[in-house]
C-alpha cells in the first residue's frame, strides 16, 4: 500500500464516523461540529483528487460560512440536548431511500469500469496550468450562461432576505 492509500483510508474512516455522529449526537452543537469535520474530510478528498480550488472553496463556503450561520442559529435559539426524547420518525422511509441509493450505486458500479478513466484534464495539465486557472477559463467562457443565471438567482435571494428582514420598518 502506498502512502496516499493509507492516508485516504484514515480520512475516509474519520469522514464516515463523523457523518454518523452528525445524526446520532443528542447535542445539536456536537452534531454541527461533526458536520464541520465531515466537510473537512470532503475537502481533503478534493485535495487528493488534484482539485485544490474545490478543497479551499469547500472549507471557505461550507465550514467557514454556512456552518457558522448554523452554529449561530443553534446558539441564538439556545437549543439544548434532549436526552430523553427518542424519535423514530421517518426511519422506514430512510431505509427505503438508503436501499434505493445503494442499488443505484451498485448498478453503476456493475455497469463497467469505474477507475482509471482519464478525461481531458489530467493531473499533468493541472500541474502545468493550475486548477484555479482551468476552472476560471471554463466558467467564464463555456459555462457563462449557468454562471449568470446563478448570480441572478443569488441576487433575488439577497433582495428577498432584505425584504423579509425589513418588513416591519416603515
Amino acid at each position: 500500500m502506498d502512502i496516499s492509500t493509507i492516508f485516504f483510508t484514515i480520512v475516509s474512516v474519520v469522514a464516515v464516523v463523523s457523518a454518523l455522529l452528525v445524526v446520532t449526537c443528542k447535542n445539536p452543537i456536537n452534531s454541527a461540529l461533526s458536520l464541520i469535520l465531515t466537510f473537512f474530510c470532503l475537502a481533503t478528498f478534493y485535495a487528493m483528487l488534484e482539485a485544490p480550488f474545490m478543497a479551499a472553496i469547500q472549507v471557505i463556503v461550507y465550514a467557514g460560512a454556512i456552518m457558522v450561520l448554523i452554529v449561530f442559529t443553534i446558539m441564538l435559539l439556545n437549543i439544548r440536548a434532549d436526552a430523553n426524547k427518542k424519535s423514530f420518525h421517518n426511519v422506514p422511509l430512510g431505509i427505503v431511500v438508503g436501499i434505493i441509493t445503494l442499488l443505484t450505486a451498485g448498478s453503476f458500479l456493475a455497469r463497467g469500469k469505474v477507475s482509471d478513466l482519464p478525461g481531458q484534464i489530467t493531473p499533468n495539465i493541472i500541474h502545468q496550468v493550475g486548477h484555479t486557472e482551468l476552472i476560471g477559463a471554463v466558467m467564464f467562457t463555456e459555462f457563462i450562461l449557468p454562471f449568470e443565471i446563478t448570480s441572478i438567482l443569488l441576487l433575488a435571494a439577497i433582495v428577498g432576505a432584505v425584504i423579509l428582514a425589513k418588513r416591519n420598518l416603515s
Binding site: 480550488f53 472549507v59 465550514a63 467557514g64 486548477h131 484555479t132
Partner: peptide, 15 residues
C-alpha cells in the same frame, strides 16, 4: 496553487 484561498479558509475557521 490556491495559497490566498487557503489563508482565507483558515481565517474563516478562527471564529
Amino acid at each position: 496553487n490556491v495559497g490566498v484561498l487557503y489563508v482565507l479558509a483558515m481565517a474563516s475557521l478562527g471564529v
